[in-house]
């Protein structure tokens, strides 16, 4: 589904991605984990050519993106959804309109747009908020809108760059639950970049560990399920108690 072959990327002499190869199969939930600055985001952004590689090939869905004209690339991007840590919604558009933009860009049949938008918002659990503006939403709700927007045009792949890193743990778990559904119900291949092990452990089937612009290892894992990171208040109480013990010691 996604194939990176000997991909390299530098930012002004500084090699951020060093000849990386990675294959992600259809239907996978693939995690990319590593310390901050390891090059995770850059690697993810190479998948839809948000960053152009200096060398190497990028193939998604059987199409060599690195060989496409800019027009063909734009077309290909419409079946690669992407969500971000800071949501990147249009602040001056309502929830409904934010999702609509994606369909407008894709030239989705006009008559079917409304149904599709409602369907997507329902899927992420937001259909009562369609007239709200992003400023009126919580972080978790904003990420749901972003997911609905990414989903609207039936993408084959969903790229997620730290999708839960600016959310509270219990909200994170909810968002991961939505992503899990997208993978299981809709069969969308998902790539998640995160620096949090718990996020990765909860829903990924395979995990790539990155360090210094290189892949350290790729391992198969058994997703442990989102309930394990559903941090209820009692979890925090426990953590606080532990911290208290350490202080006493």
């Amino acid at each position: 589904m996604i194939k990176l072959v000997n991909v390299s990327k530098s930012f002004s002499q500084f090699k951020v991605i060093k000849s990386v190869s990675l294959t992600i199969d259809k239907g996978e939930v693939h995690g990319i984990i590593g310390a901050s600055g390891a090059g995770k985001s850059t690697l993810l952004r190479l998948v839809n050519l948000l960053e152009l590689p200096d060398q190497g090939e990028v193939e998604v869905n059987g199409q060599k993106l690195t060989n496409l004209s800019s027009k063909e690339l734009r077309r290909a991007r419409k079946s690669i959804g992407m969500i971000f840590q800071h949501f990147n919604l249009l602040a001056n558009k309502t929830v409904y309109e934010n999702v609509a933009v994606s369909l407008e860009l894709a030239n989705y049949p006009k008559k079917e747009r409304r149904d599709r938008i409602i369907e997507c918002l329902q899927f992420v659990g937001l259909k009562d908020l369609i007239k709200q503006y992003p400023a009126q939403l919580s972080g978790g709700q904003k990420q749901r809108v972003a997911i609905a927007r990414a989903l609207a045009n039936n993408p084959q792949v969903l790229l997620c760059d730290e999708p839960t890193s600016s959310l509270d743990p219990n909200i994170s778990a909810e968002i991961l639950g939505v992503l899990e559904n997208i993978n299981k119900v809709l069969g969308v291949t998902i790539v998640i970049v995160s620096h949090e092990m718990e996020v990765i452990k909860s829903i990924c089937n395979r995990v790539t560990v990155m360090a210094n612009g290189e892949i350290y290892d790729t391992v198969s894992t058994e997703p442990i399920g989102i309930h394990h990171i559903d941090k209820s208040p009692s979890y925090f109480v426990e953590q606080l108690a532990k911290a208290g013990e350490m202080d006493d010691a």
Binding site: R77, K78, M82, F84, H86, F87, N88, L89, L105, L159
Partner: peptide
């Protein structure tokens, strides 16, 4: 305009 909004636009295949 936040850089992220531009990135979202590009990732959605906007001309």
């Amino acid at each position: 305009v936040p850089k992220g909004v531009m990135e979202a636009a590009i990732s959605m295949g906007a001309s």
